[in-house]
Amino acid sequence: MPKAGKITFLASDSEAAKDALAKLSAIYGSVPLDKAEVIVALGGDGFMLHTLHATQAMDVPVYGMNCGTIGFLMNEYGEEGLRERLESAEEEVINPLSMRATRADGTVHEALAINEVSLLRAGPQAAKLRITIDGKMRMEELVCDGALVCTPAGSTAYNYSAHGPILPIGAEVLALTAMAAFRPRRWRGALLPMTAKVRFDVLDPQKRPVMADADGRSARDVVTVEVQSEPSVRHRILFDPGHGLEERLTREQFV
């Protein structure tokens, strides 16, 4: 990380984050966002994802400080020595997933996801999905509560809760994971190359409606969803030395 320059502090709506914003801005100053050389996001993982999405066109590194709950993407909160921490921080570069979801009425919903793109049943009956990888049909019918494609950075989030694998941050792979698969019974998914283009077709969408979600950006009543890595977009995330994503991903497996 180059010498810490002009800092912009951004905070979530929580009282702890707003209190931290006031204290840190008073100590270090805070420039307008368009002048930032580094962004310090105050909140939890949800706010970090929001900040990364909102500033992705700026190519400015983001350093998170945990004022939330889990804080997997965040550093420990502290008011002392922030400039020194920024100067010694390690940078991780993450490429998001792109989602292109076509709804039953023909409209198309596009969004980017840093963690995962997920399909979820939107009614009382299980979803029925057909899965195609790089133009080749790989599973004719998956009956499940849902399925997701995740990045290595997102592999400890929803994916891990659905019993998907934790992926090393440098791995050039994506995880395709099923939620509560009924048929094939207990099918948990597959590992795919980072370049894979995944297509989900919703079977019987009127009787078994499905919604698609990319980091909280949702589309209902989808009939097809296409997912792939988007190398043209990069998110720069800063971590304190020895506490980067690779260390966190490894540590998570030995809890």
Rank of each mutant, 00 (worst) to 15 (best):
M194F: 11
M194D: 13
M194I: 13
M194R: 15
M194C: 12
M194S: 14
T195I: 02
A196N: 01
A196V: 00
A196F: 00
A196I: 00
K197D: 05
K197Q: 13
K197W: 00
K197Y: 02
K197L: 05
V198Y: 00
V198L: 01
V198E: 01
R199W: 01
R199C: 09
R199Y: 01
D201L: 03
D201R: 11
D201Q: 11
V202D: 01
V202W: 04
V202T: 03
L203E: 02
L203I: 12
L203V: 09
L203P: 01
L203S: 04
D204C: 05
P205I: 04
Q206P: 10
Q206Y: 13
K207D: 14
K207V: 12
K207M: 13
K207N: 15
K207T: 14
R208N: 04
P209N: 03
P209C: 11
P209W: 09
V210P: 01
V210G: 01
V210F: 02
V210R: 01
M211I: 11
M211E: 12
M211F: 10
M211A: 13
M211W: 07
M211H: 11
M211N: 11
A212P: 08
A212S: 12
A212K: 07
D213T: 12
D213G: 06
D213I: 09
A214K: 05
A214D: 06
A214L: 07
A214G: 06
A214Q: 09
D215E: 04
D215T: 02
D215M: 09
D215I: 07
R217D: 13
R217V: 14
R217G: 07
R217K: 15
R217S: 15
S218L: 14
S218C: 14
S218A: 14
A219R: 06
R220L: 15
R220M: 14
D221M: 14
D221F: 12
V222Y: 08
V222K: 04
V222D: 08
V222W: 03
V222P: 06
V222N: 09
V223G: 02
V223N: 03
V223E: 07
V223T: 13
V223A: 07
V223Y: 08
T224H: 03
T224F: 09
T224E: 11
T224Y: 08
T224P: 03
T224C: 05
V225Q: 06
V225L: 08
V225E: 02
V225M: 05
V225F: 07
E226M: 10
E226N: 08
E226Y: 10
E226L: 06
V227C: 08
V227I: 15
V227Y: 02
V227Q: 05
Q228D: 12
Q228F: 12
S229M: 13
E230G: 01
E230L: 12
P231H: 05
P231C: 04
S232W: 04
S232G: 09
S232C: 05
S232F: 03
S232V: 10
V233Y: 10
V233F: 07
V233P: 01
V233M: 09
V233H: 08
V233E: 08
V233C: 08
V233K: 10
R234W: 09
R234F: 10
R234N: 15
R234V: 11
R234A: 15
R234L: 07
